[in-house]
């Protein structure tokens, strides 16, 4: 009897879960999400898929230009973003830096994080015009938001004992970072970077929809022309490339012993 009491959820938890369940039911009723609607949708879906196949292989040049542009954007944005995140992450680590500095660094990172890449891409298209440059800048901002934040957290989680020993040797602050901090966070950092590259590859296929370069533009216009066969080709290509980079990043992680 006593054990059942010990594991009983608190009153707040029970009220909250009942409230959540009630809201889900309410939302379902409001959105007219019924079985009949779902079955009707299935028929549309089948029609779409039938129009997608066979994939259109004739527009190879549009596909090639768009995909290479996307890849280049992703790579450049990742590089730029990582280069900027490195110092920002270090400056944002509360175990290494004075408080005002961490606030500033964390503020910059938080601003970069707060907006979705597509919204940032629209802003940059308005600011610097259509094309890959806007896309690269948008993806860079997103990379700073992600890598900067998680890198700062990784630095905050390092063992202070190891750093203390390096400090005791009379090392300068820069040498302290190089021998005491970098070895402890390198593996995490490589992991973050490969994840960000992966993420940028996916996002680089999307920012084109708002005119910021890459395959997204071609994809969007194919949708608008109801050219589903070409849409299918583009989607398949994107999937293949994402899977290939996945394999590549696994290799990179192995090399760095993550």
């Amino acid at each position: 009897m006593k054990t059942t009491m010990a594991f009983r959820a608190s009153a707040t938890t029970r009220w909250l879960s009942m409230g959540l369940a009630a809201y889900v039911l309410f939302a379902l009723s409001r959105l007219e999400f019924s079985w009949g609607r779902f079955v009707a949708g299935l028929a549309h879906g089948a029609q779409l898929i039938s129009r997608m196949f066979p994939p259109d292989m004739a527009k190879g040049d549009i596909l090639w230009t768009g995909m290479t542009e996307s890849l280049q954007m992703a790579l450049l944005a990742s590089l730029l973003g990582i280069l900027i995140s490195l110092p920002l992450g270090l400056l944002g680590a509360r175990n290494l830096m004075p408080q005002p500095v961490t606030w500033l660094a964390r503020g910059v990172v938080a601003v970069c994080r707060s907006l979705h890449p597509v919204i940032v891409a629209i802003l940059f298209v308005k600011a610097v015009g259509f094309g890959a440059l806007a896309g690269i800048l948008a993806l860079t901002v997103g990379s700073i938001g992600f890598v900067g934040k998680l890198f700062a957290e990784a630095v905050e989680e390092i063992s202070a004992k190891q750093v203390e020993a390096v400090r005791a040797s009379g090392a300068s602050f820069a040498n302290l970072i190089i021998f005491g901090v970098v070895p402890q966070v390198l593996a995490r950092f490589v992991g973050l970077c490969t994840y960000q590259l992966d993420s940028n590859l996916r996002n680089s296929t999307m920012v084109g929809i708002v005119g910021a370069g890459g395959i997204g533009g071609a994809l969007f216009s194919a949708f608008q022309r109801f050219d589903y066969a070409f849409v299918c080709t583009i989607l398949l290509t994107i999937i293949v490339i994402i899977v290939l980079t996945e394999l590549l990043t696994e290799r990179v992680k192995k090399v760095f012993n993550v």
């Binding site: 020993a165 390096v166 009379g170 090392a171 300068s172 005491g180 070895p183 402890q184």
Partner: peptide, 19 residues
Amino acid sequence: YNLVERLTVMENLLTGRLG
């Protein structure tokens, strides 16, 4: 011990020369 775990023994020794 407070060795830098991910560094080699040699690198840990060289830590003594970082100053």
